[in-house]
């Protein structure tokens, strides 16, 4: 189904411009490298989870140029990014900021993994100590199972 998303993405960028045009590049390679790093962390607002570095959308181009201008003017990476957050909100960041509203998002997965692992261990330990609560197979079940395994197993 992804095809439809990407298709729509192309509808928006019907001009089929590509990401990072040579004409956008800065003469200073160090500055340009920083611009690329920043670009890859910024969301193209009108696309699907694509960074502005990858997107061919017009707006992505504008933001790439904006970032380069800020860097040329002497901004740090953080300042250039903040300038965009001031305009578009944290939606522009592909990496959501760690703040109270995103604690669940950021700490949820490791917490869940911890609970999962500990819970499983406790469950296994408890099973070890309590006698098997499973009833043995009834004669009928055992016969059926046996037939199945024998009739078909290698």
């Amino acid at each position: 189904m992804r095809r439809f998303v990407l298709a729509a993405l192309f509808l928006l960028t019907a001009v089929a411009a590509h990401a990072v045009e040579p004409s956008e590049r800065l003469a200073d390679p160090a500055l340009e490298a920083r611009a690329r790093v920043i670009s890859s962390q910024l969301r193209c607002l009108v696309c699907q989870n694509e960074s502005i570095d990858e997107s061919g959308a017009d707006l992505a181009h504008d933001i790439r140029m904006f970032v380069r201008e800020r860097l040329t003017a002497g901004d740090t990476n953080a300042q250039a990014v903040q300038a965009l957050v001031n305009r578009y909100g944290s939606f522009v960041l592909l990496k959501p900021p760690v703040e109270p509203a995103t604690y669940v998002l950021w700490y949820g997965p490791p917490l869940l993994l911890g609970i999962g692992l500990v819970g499983t261990l406790v469950w296994l330990k408890r099973r070890q100590t309590t006698p098997a609560e499973a009833e043995p197979l009834s004669a009928d079940e055992a016969r059926r199972l046996d037939g199945l395994m024998r009739g078909t197993d290698v």
Binding site: Q41, R43, N49, S51, G89, S90, F91, V92, L93, L94, K95, P96, A101, T102, L105, W106, P109, P110, L113
Partner: peptide
Amino acid sequence: GPKLSVGFPFFNRTFAPM
């Protein structure tokens, strides 16, 4: 709440280590 994007940096930091 605020509008957020959850992109590859999030998944690289959470899903990949698992």
